[in-house]
Design a protein around this nucleic acid. Structure first.
Lengths: 133, 133
DNA sequence: AGTATATATCGTGTATCGACGATCAACGAT
DNA sequence: ATCGTTGATCGTCGATACACGATATATACT
């Protein structure tokens, strides 16, 4: 079931609720987990682009690129506007918010055993053995 | 485990370095492209954790979780410190910078048709949804 | 020595991915 | 109506991912 749940929450503001499910975030990451699709996203980051042009840039068969576009579109990362015989693809910025939010949290997490070696298990302790942990 | 979503911003500056290769970014995204691995990352976001505990939380077979940990470790997203008979896993925040950087760029791209290329969209046009775009 | 714990690795079956060429569908132009 | 362009879909193949149980490895403890 496609849980639409269009959270307009912006990761920048760190909304009180962060309902994005693991599956939802994983789906976004998975859609981005291919070099060709990263390539496409970067292209669209510069400017909206027509399919044929994307095919030329990516350098794969048209059918293959179409499939990558389909995957990105299914994940909500891009969207296509039909015009004439072409389709103009553009980014859907809000779609990456859940993943971006998680990554920003990770990125700022510099607490890996900061207190020398004895910090492996923080106060709450993930384990009883705090001895050499 | 509702972690308080501490207010934070995306790595706007990030490592000014350069566009990590598409393959590199895709590899990070791919490693995150599974619910179980997102689950693990979220656990480690709270606190470093020992393998056995992760197995209990994720709810999959030990061997399966070990494989997910291996994938995350291979991508550089986490690292494990051997202690006694256990391994304490923790996040490697810097590893996600390339992907976080791209996503922050995407997220701020709410200007769908702002280019003057006119190949797809009219220069100043595209106000609102889509005109002749 | 042996035992117990914690994790990694192996081997397997199934499911999905990724690439391609070929083909279909839509629509403006001729 | 026909043609030409553009993009989506189909069918197929090999490669990879994912899950599991069984087994191997490493170390502390007795």
């Amino acid at each position: 079931m496609p849980v639409v749940a269009e959270t307009q929450s912006l990761p920048l503001d760190a909304p009180a609720a962060e309902p994005a499910s693991g599956a939802e975030i994983a789906a976004i990451a998975k859609a981005l987990g291919h070099p060709a699709r990263i390539h496409i996203v970067r292209l669209l980051l510069e400017e909206p682009c027509v399919g044929r042009e994307i095919v030329g840039e990516v350098g794969l068969a048209q059918s293959t690129v179409s499939e990558h576009l389909r995957i990105l579109k299914a994940a909500g990362i891009i969207m296509g506007e039909i015009e004439h015989p072409r389709v103009c693809y553009s980014l859907n910025p809000d779609s990456v918010a859940p993943l971006a939010g998680l990554l920003s949290a990770v990125f700022e997490k510099d607490n890996r055993c900061e207190v020398d070696d004895a910090d492996c298990c923080p106060p709450a302790g993930c384990e009883s053995t705090n001895t050499s942990c």
